[in-house]
Design a protein around this nucleic acid. Structure first.
Ligand SMILES: [Mn+2]
Ligand SMILES: [Mn+2]
Ligand SMILES: [Zn+2]
Ligand SMILES: [Zn+2]
Lengths: 143, 143
DNA sequence: ATGCTATTGATATTCACTTTCAGCAGACAG
DNA sequence: CTGTCTGCTGAAAGTGAATATCAATAGCAT
Protein backbone atom coordinates (compact mmCIF):
# COMPACT_ATOMS: atom_id res chain seq x y z
CA UNK A 1 0.00 0.00 0.00
CA UNK A 2 2.61 2.49 1.13
CA UNK A 3 5.16 0.99 -1.27
CA UNK A 4 2.71 1.25 -4.15
CA UNK A 5 2.19 4.94 -3.54
CA UNK A 6 5.90 5.58 -3.17
CA UNK A 7 6.35 3.91 -6.55
CA UNK A 8 3.64 6.04 -8.15
CA UNK A 9 5.26 9.18 -6.83
CA UNK A 10 8.78 8.18 -7.91
CA UNK A 11 7.47 7.38 -11.38
CA UNK A 12 5.71 10.72 -11.55
CA UNK A 13 8.87 12.54 -10.45
CA UNK A 14 10.88 10.74 -13.10
CA UNK A 15 8.36 11.24 -15.89
CA UNK A 16 8.15 14.97 -15.23
CA UNK A 17 11.91 15.44 -15.14
CA UNK A 18 11.76 16.46 -11.49
CA UNK A 19 14.33 15.57 -8.88
CA UNK A 20 14.25 13.13 -6.03
CA UNK A 21 15.20 15.00 -2.88
CA UNK A 22 15.74 14.25 0.77
CA UNK A 23 12.85 16.57 1.71
CA UNK A 24 10.39 14.93 -0.65
CA UNK A 25 11.24 11.51 0.72
CA UNK A 26 10.76 12.68 4.29
CA UNK A 27 7.48 14.43 3.58
CA UNK A 28 6.16 11.48 1.58
CA UNK A 29 6.98 9.12 4.41
CA UNK A 30 5.27 11.35 6.98
CA UNK A 31 2.22 11.75 4.77
CA UNK A 32 1.87 8.03 4.09
CA UNK A 33 2.41 7.20 7.77
CA UNK A 34 -0.59 9.28 8.70
CA UNK A 35 -4.05 8.00 7.99
CA UNK A 36 -5.72 11.26 8.82
CA UNK A 37 -6.93 14.17 6.74
CA UNK A 38 -4.07 16.52 7.37
CA UNK A 39 -3.72 20.22 6.69
CA UNK A 40 -0.42 21.65 5.49
CA UNK A 41 0.12 23.21 8.89
CA UNK A 42 -0.53 19.94 10.72
CA UNK A 43 1.90 17.99 8.58
CA UNK A 44 4.45 20.79 8.84
CA UNK A 45 4.25 20.81 12.63
CA UNK A 46 4.38 17.02 12.78
CA UNK A 47 7.58 17.08 10.72
CA UNK A 48 9.22 19.87 12.68
CA UNK A 49 9.86 17.62 15.64
CA UNK A 50 12.30 15.40 13.74
CA UNK A 51 13.16 17.70 10.85
CA UNK A 52 13.26 21.32 12.03
CA UNK A 53 15.01 22.41 8.86
CA UNK A 54 12.15 21.62 6.49
CA UNK A 55 10.23 24.74 5.55
CA UNK A 56 6.50 25.31 5.37
CA UNK A 57 6.73 26.23 1.68
CA UNK A 58 8.34 22.91 0.88
CA UNK A 59 5.59 20.98 2.65
CA UNK A 60 3.05 23.08 0.79
CA UNK A 61 4.65 22.47 -2.60
CA UNK A 62 5.24 18.81 -1.96
CA UNK A 63 1.62 18.14 -1.00
CA UNK A 64 0.59 19.78 -4.28
CA UNK A 65 2.98 17.43 -6.04
CA UNK A 66 1.38 14.47 -4.27
CA UNK A 67 -1.99 15.60 -5.57
CA UNK A 68 -0.58 16.04 -9.09
CA UNK A 69 0.94 12.57 -8.99
CA UNK A 70 -2.38 11.04 -7.98
CA UNK A 71 -1.54 9.77 -4.49
CA UNK A 72 -3.31 12.60 -2.65
CA UNK A 73 -6.33 14.82 -2.99
CA UNK A 74 -7.11 18.27 -1.68
CA UNK A 75 -10.22 18.46 0.41
CA UNK A 76 -12.04 21.24 2.24
CA UNK A 77 -14.29 20.70 5.22
CA UNK A 78 -15.20 24.33 5.60
CA UNK A 79 -12.93 25.08 8.55
CA UNK A 80 -10.72 27.37 6.50
CA UNK A 81 -7.90 24.86 6.10
CA UNK A 82 -7.15 22.84 3.00
CA UNK A 83 -6.53 19.21 3.87
CA UNK A 84 -4.89 16.38 1.97
CA UNK A 85 -6.09 12.82 2.06
CA UNK A 86 -4.76 9.59 0.59
CA UNK A 87 -6.06 8.47 -2.79
CA UNK A 88 -6.10 4.86 -3.80
CA UNK A 89 -6.57 3.98 -7.46
CA UNK A 90 -10.09 2.78 -8.20
CA UNK A 91 -11.43 3.68 -4.78
CA UNK A 92 -13.78 6.44 -3.79
CA UNK A 93 -15.36 7.51 -0.54
CA UNK A 94 -17.27 10.40 0.99
CA UNK A 95 -17.23 11.82 4.52
CA UNK A 96 -19.09 12.21 7.75
CA UNK A 97 -17.64 15.19 9.64
CA UNK A 98 -18.20 15.69 13.36
CA UNK A 99 -18.62 19.39 14.07
CA UNK A 100 -17.88 18.79 17.75
CA UNK A 101 -14.64 16.81 17.89
CA UNK A 102 -13.52 17.09 14.26
CA UNK A 103 -13.65 13.34 13.67
CA UNK A 104 -13.84 12.36 10.03
CA UNK A 105 -15.50 9.08 9.09
CA UNK A 106 -15.26 7.73 5.58
CA UNK A 107 -18.04 5.84 3.84
CA UNK A 108 -18.88 4.41 0.46
CA UNK A 109 -22.39 4.15 -0.89
CA UNK A 110 -22.88 2.88 -4.40
CA UNK A 111 -26.60 3.66 -4.41
CA UNK A 112 -25.98 7.34 -3.76
CA UNK A 113 -23.36 7.43 -6.51
CA UNK A 114 -25.83 5.93 -8.95
CA UNK A 115 -28.52 8.42 -8.04
CA UNK A 116 -26.04 11.25 -8.54
CA UNK A 117 -25.40 9.98 -12.06
CA UNK A 118 -29.12 9.93 -12.71
CA UNK A 119 -29.48 13.51 -11.54
CA UNK A 120 -26.67 14.53 -13.85
CA UNK A 121 -28.18 12.72 -16.82
CA UNK A 122 -31.56 14.33 -16.16
CA UNK A 123 -29.91 17.75 -16.46
CA UNK A 124 -27.66 16.93 -19.41
CA UNK A 125 -24.75 17.43 -17.06
CA UNK A 126 -21.37 15.66 -17.29
CA UNK A 127 -19.96 14.98 -13.81
CA UNK A 128 -16.21 15.24 -13.34
CA UNK A 129 -16.15 14.90 -9.58
CA UNK A 130 -18.38 15.49 -6.60
CA UNK A 131 -18.43 16.38 -2.96
CA UNK A 132 -20.70 14.75 -0.41
CA UNK A 133 -20.20 15.59 3.22
CA UNK A 134 -22.56 14.92 6.10
CA UNK A 135 -21.95 17.28 9.02
CA UNK A 136 -23.18 16.65 12.52
CA UNK A 137 -22.31 14.78 15.71
CA UNK A 138 -20.44 11.49 15.77
CA UNK A 139 -21.48 8.59 17.99
CA UNK A 140 -19.19 9.83 20.77
CA UNK A 141 -20.36 13.43 20.67
CA UNK A 142 -24.10 13.07 20.25
CA UNK A 143 -26.20 13.70 23.35
CA UNK B 1 -42.13 35.14 -1.61
CA UNK B 2 -40.11 38.31 -1.45
CA UNK B 3 -42.58 39.83 1.01
CA UNK B 4 -42.42 36.76 3.21
CA UNK B 5 -38.65 37.00 3.51
CA UNK B 6 -38.77 40.71 4.17
CA UNK B 7 -41.18 39.95 6.99
CA UNK B 8 -38.93 37.26 8.43
CA UNK B 9 -36.00 39.64 8.40
CA UNK B 10 -37.95 42.54 9.96
CA UNK B 11 -39.17 40.22 12.70
CA UNK B 12 -35.66 39.00 13.34
CA UNK B 13 -34.37 42.58 13.52
CA UNK B 14 -37.12 43.49 15.98
CA UNK B 15 -36.71 40.42 18.14
CA UNK B 16 -32.95 40.96 18.46
CA UNK B 17 -33.31 44.62 19.35
CA UNK B 18 -31.51 45.64 16.16
CA UNK B 19 -32.34 48.68 14.08
CA UNK B 20 -34.02 49.00 10.75
CA UNK B 21 -31.77 51.05 8.51
CA UNK B 22 -31.81 52.45 5.01
CA UNK B 23 -28.77 50.34 4.08
CA UNK B 24 -30.30 47.08 5.29
CA UNK B 25 -33.45 47.76 3.31
CA UNK B 26 -31.47 48.48 0.16
CA UNK B 27 -29.24 45.43 0.53
CA UNK B 28 -32.19 43.19 1.34
CA UNK B 29 -34.01 44.39 -1.76
CA UNK B 30 -30.97 43.80 -3.95
CA UNK B 31 -30.41 40.35 -2.48
CA UNK B 32 -34.02 39.26 -2.91
CA UNK B 33 -34.13 40.66 -6.44
CA UNK B 34 -31.29 38.41 -7.47
CA UNK B 35 -31.89 34.73 -7.95
CA UNK B 36 -28.25 33.88 -8.23
CA UNK B 37 -25.69 32.59 -5.78
CA UNK B 38 -23.94 35.87 -5.09
CA UNK B 39 -20.64 36.57 -3.41
CA UNK B 40 -20.25 39.58 -1.13
CA UNK B 41 -18.14 41.26 -3.78
CA UNK B 42 -20.74 40.66 -6.49
CA UNK B 43 -23.58 42.08 -4.46
CA UNK B 44 -21.43 45.00 -3.39
CA UNK B 45 -20.53 45.88 -6.98
CA UNK B 46 -24.13 45.45 -8.09
CA UNK B 47 -25.21 47.93 -5.42
CA UNK B 48 -22.49 50.46 -6.13
CA UNK B 49 -24.17 51.56 -9.35
CA UNK B 50 -27.22 53.00 -7.59
CA UNK B 51 -25.82 53.36 -4.07
CA UNK B 52 -22.15 54.35 -4.22
CA UNK B 53 -22.16 55.28 -0.54
CA UNK B 54 -22.78 51.77 0.79
CA UNK B 55 -19.58 50.17 2.04
CA UNK B 56 -18.27 46.67 1.50
CA UNK B 57 -18.23 46.01 5.25
CA UNK B 58 -21.92 46.80 5.51
CA UNK B 59 -22.78 44.39 2.72
CA UNK B 60 -20.64 41.77 4.41
CA UNK B 61 -22.28 42.28 7.80
CA UNK B 62 -25.78 42.45 6.38
CA UNK B 63 -25.42 39.20 4.49
CA UNK B 64 -24.35 37.55 7.75
CA UNK B 65 -27.49 38.97 9.31
CA UNK B 66 -29.58 37.49 6.52
CA UNK B 67 -28.06 34.12 7.26
CA UNK B 68 -28.69 34.54 10.99
CA UNK B 69 -32.30 35.46 10.34
CA UNK B 70 -32.83 32.38 8.22
CA UNK B 71 -33.46 33.94 4.82
CA UNK B 72 -30.00 33.21 3.44
CA UNK B 73 -27.29 30.59 3.67
CA UNK B 74 -23.55 30.73 3.17
CA UNK B 75 -22.25 28.40 0.53
CA UNK B 76 -18.80 27.60 -0.85
CA UNK B 77 -18.20 26.19 -4.30
CA UNK B 78 -14.46 26.02 -3.89
CA UNK B 79 -13.60 29.09 -5.95
CA UNK B 80 -12.34 30.96 -2.92
CA UNK B 81 -15.43 33.17 -2.59
CA UNK B 82 -18.18 32.71 -0.03
CA UNK B 83 -21.59 32.96 -1.65
CA UNK B 84 -25.05 33.56 -0.25
CA UNK B 85 -28.17 31.90 -1.55
CA UNK B 86 -31.86 32.25 -0.71
CA UNK B 87 -33.35 29.92 1.86
CA UNK B 88 -37.02 29.07 1.85
CA UNK B 89 -38.56 27.51 4.94
CA UNK B 90 -39.10 23.78 4.50
CA UNK B 91 -37.22 23.57 1.23
CA UNK B 92 -33.88 22.04 0.51
CA UNK B 93 -31.81 21.58 -2.60
CA UNK B 94 -28.31 20.61 -3.69
CA UNK B 95 -26.19 21.83 -6.62
CA UNK B 96 -24.72 20.98 -9.97
CA UNK B 97 -21.79 23.32 -10.62
CA UNK B 98 -20.38 23.87 -14.10
CA UNK B 99 -16.62 24.21 -13.88
CA UNK B 100 -16.52 25.82 -17.31
CA UNK B 101 -19.09 28.65 -17.26
CA UNK B 102 -19.85 28.78 -13.54
CA UNK B 103 -23.51 27.93 -14.02
CA UNK B 104 -25.21 26.62 -10.90
CA UNK B 105 -28.17 24.28 -11.24
CA UNK B 106 -30.27 23.36 -8.26
CA UNK B 107 -31.85 19.96 -7.76
CA UNK B 108 -33.79 18.03 -5.17
CA UNK B 109 -33.58 14.30 -4.72
CA UNK B 110 -35.45 12.69 -1.90
CA UNK B 111 -33.91 9.26 -2.50
CA UNK B 112 -30.41 10.61 -2.00
CA UNK B 113 -31.49 12.38 1.18
CA UNK B 114 -32.94 9.13 2.52
CA UNK B 115 -29.77 7.19 1.75
CA UNK B 116 -27.74 9.85 3.52
CA UNK B 117 -29.86 9.35 6.61
CA UNK B 118 -29.26 5.60 6.40
CA UNK B 119 -25.51 6.13 6.17
CA UNK B 120 -25.67 8.35 9.24
CA UNK B 121 -27.70 5.84 11.21
CA UNK B 122 -25.31 3.04 10.28
CA UNK B 123 -22.48 5.05 11.83
CA UNK B 124 -24.40 6.28 14.86
CA UNK B 125 -24.04 9.76 13.46
CA UNK B 126 -26.49 12.63 13.94
CA UNK B 127 -26.67 14.79 10.80
CA UNK B 128 -27.11 18.54 11.25
CA UNK B 129 -26.63 19.56 7.64
CA UNK B 130 -24.92 18.31 4.54
CA UNK B 131 -23.26 19.36 1.33
CA UNK B 132 -23.75 17.64 -2.00
CA UNK B 133 -22.26 19.22 -5.07
CA UNK B 134 -21.76 17.64 -8.47
CA UNK B 135 -19.01 19.36 -10.43
CA UNK B 136 -18.59 19.04 -14.18
CA UNK B 137 -19.84 20.45 -17.47
CA UNK B 138 -23.36 21.75 -17.97
CA UNK B 139 -25.41 20.91 -21.05
CA UNK B 140 -24.10 24.02 -22.83
CA UNK B 141 -20.46 23.43 -22.05
CA UNK B 142 -20.09 19.70 -22.56
CA UNK B 143 -18.36 18.64 -25.80
C1' DA C 1 -35.78 67.50 20.58
C1' DT C 2 -32.52 64.68 23.58
C1' DG C 3 -29.76 60.99 24.75
C1' DC C 4 -28.53 56.33 24.42
C1' DT C 5 -26.91 52.70 21.34
C1' DA C 6 -26.59 50.39 17.33
C1' DT C 7 -24.76 51.06 12.73
C1' DT C 8 -21.90 52.59 9.18
C1' DG C 9 -17.83 53.09 6.11
C1' DA C 10 -13.07 53.64 5.72
C1' DT C 11 -9.31 51.45 7.10
C1' DA C 12 -6.37 48.14 9.42
C1' DT C 13 -5.60 43.45 10.52
C1' DT C 14 -5.77 38.52 10.12
C1' DC C 15 -5.26 34.20 8.01
C1' DA C 16 -4.13 30.80 4.85
C1' DC C 17 -2.10 30.27 1.23
C1' DT C 18 1.11 31.51 -2.86
C1' DT C 19 5.07 33.62 -4.99
C1' DT C 20 9.80 35.29 -5.07
C1' DC C 21 14.65 34.80 -5.04
C1' DA C 22 19.35 33.89 -3.68
C1' DG C 23 21.83 30.03 -2.20
C1' DC C 24 21.88 24.97 -2.39
C1' DA C 25 21.92 20.27 -4.11
C1' DG C 26 20.58 16.42 -7.39
C1' DA C 27 21.71 14.50 -11.98
C1' DC C 28 24.59 13.62 -15.45
C1' DA C 29 28.35 14.30 -18.98
C1' DG C 30 33.01 14.05 -19.35
C1' DC D 1 35.26 12.04 -9.33
C1' DT D 2 34.38 16.88 -10.74
C1' DG D 3 32.14 20.56 -13.00
C1' DT D 4 28.06 22.37 -14.72
C1' DC D 5 23.46 22.86 -15.45
C1' DT D 6 19.03 23.25 -13.62
C1' DG D 7 15.66 22.19 -10.43
C1' DC D 8 14.83 22.64 -5.28
C1' DT D 9 14.69 24.77 -0.82
C1' DG D 10 13.59 27.96 3.00
C1' DA D 11 12.95 32.54 4.55
C1' DA D 12 10.51 36.20 3.62
C1' DA D 13 7.43 39.01 1.07
C1' DG D 14 2.98 39.29 -1.37
C1' DT D 15 -1.98 38.23 -2.16
C1' DG D 16 -6.88 38.20 -1.62
C1' DA D 17 -10.87 37.36 0.97
C1' DA D 18 -12.73 37.68 5.38
C1' DT D 19 -13.04 39.97 9.77
C1' DA D 20 -12.08 43.53 13.31
C1' DT D 21 -11.51 48.41 14.73
C1' DC D 22 -13.14 52.96 15.63
C1' DA D 23 -14.77 57.66 15.16
C1' DA D 24 -18.71 59.70 13.16
C1' DT D 25 -23.55 59.03 12.25
C1' DA D 26 -28.32 57.75 12.56
C1' DG D 27 -32.36 54.98 14.61
C1' DC D 28 -35.54 55.11 18.21
C1' DA D 29 -37.58 55.44 22.80
C1' DT D 30 -38.59 58.93 25.96
MN1 LIG E 1 -11.22 10.65 3.28
MN1 LIG F 1 -28.85 27.06 -4.43
ZN1 LIG G 1 -17.35 13.89 17.49
ZN1 LIG H 1 -21.36 25.50 -18.25
Amino acid sequence: MKRAKQKIFQDYIAKQGLKSTRQRDIILDAFLSSDRHLSIEELYLKLRAKHPNIGYATVYRTLKLFADSGIAREIQFGDGQTRYEHVTEGEHHDHLVCTECGAIIEFENESIEKLQDEVAVAHGFLIKHHKLELYGLCAKCRP
